[in-house]
Design a protein around this nucleic acid. Structure first.
Lengths: 145, 145
DNA sequence: CTGGTTTGAGACTTTCGAGTCTCAAAAAAC
DNA sequence: GTTTTTTGAGACTCGAAAGTCTCAAACCAG
């Protein structure tokens, strides 16, 4: 059951790693992140570009350049990252893939799926990068394969 | 958010249609189903072949041939169809795509995702084709695009 | 038995997300 | 100013899911 695209997954892994291991200071080198997390450098760069354009990250070119969070990690919610990388239709899909499925024209599993999607969205709304990072550094949870 | 493959989606749509519109008698022509539901005939045939081999459907070749449910629709659960078409790993995935994520080595969102997967599985366990068919015929819910 | 109809099986093609490569642009070091 | 380092942008390639095609096998009708 693949829910999130690789883009979202890599972004969450990488930014959680930044919060857990890099504190909140200065720009973090993308090449180093790519090596530490075993994620393709070019692919990771493309993902960060989208987040930079969306205002979630700031970037800096040249020696000692890299990316950093545009706001403190406790103010950045998971949903923001997912929204950027999955697009606006992410929480608006029908489990049976029927276009037009909705309150006024529901498919047979619409009611259940509506609640399931709402629960997932709520989780993403409530969780911040700071919490993910804290879990990883406090409980030493895994973040790479 | 794409959760089920096209195979599962088409199978559920087609079998719900069969239950709702064809009653429980005789073999239903695949070509007719393909046309009624606007699903590729060859693709639908391949999907039904998997369900036939799994014992969920029975098929019959030649004139007036087709497929039919191997058991009454109130005894066929949605989970059976999903299991066949998605494979055994479907409910065993990590939201962050981390191999080895589990109770003893959880990712930062493991606890939440475990519950969400369990809820989805339970819904699929509880829902039968008969219920899907009844919803469609009683409430005139949509099943095609 | 012959011909038409339908599912079975597998090869083939298409599409799209994922990943790679190349070069441009910005910044620092010298 | 030139070179080096790093991100930015876009074209290109790869692989798996989705979809198509062809022919074989089963079955019925005549």
């Amino acid at each position: 059951m693949k829910v999130l695209s690789k883009g979202s997954v890599y972004a969450l892994r990488a930014l959680t790693y930044v919060v857990a291991h890099k504190g909140d200071i200065g720009f973090v080198n993308i090449g180093e992140l790519s090596r530490s997390l075993d994620i393709s450098f070019h692919f990771l760069t493309k993902i960060f570009q989208q987040l930079t354009q969306a205002g979630i990250l700031e970037s800096y070119r040249g020696p000692n350049g890299g990316i950093k969070l545009a706001r403190p990690p406790q103010e950045i919610k998971v949903i923001e990252i997912v929204d950027v990388l999955e697009g606006p239709e992410f929480f608006n899909t029908c489990l049976l893939g029927l276009p037009g499925c909705g309150e006024f024209d529901p498919c047979p599993v619409h009611d259940f799926w509506k609640d399931a999607k709402a629960a997932l969205r709520e989780e993403f709304e409530e969780t911040t990068l700071a919490e993910l990072g804290k879990k990883v550094s406090d409980e030493r949870l895994r973040i790479k394969p």
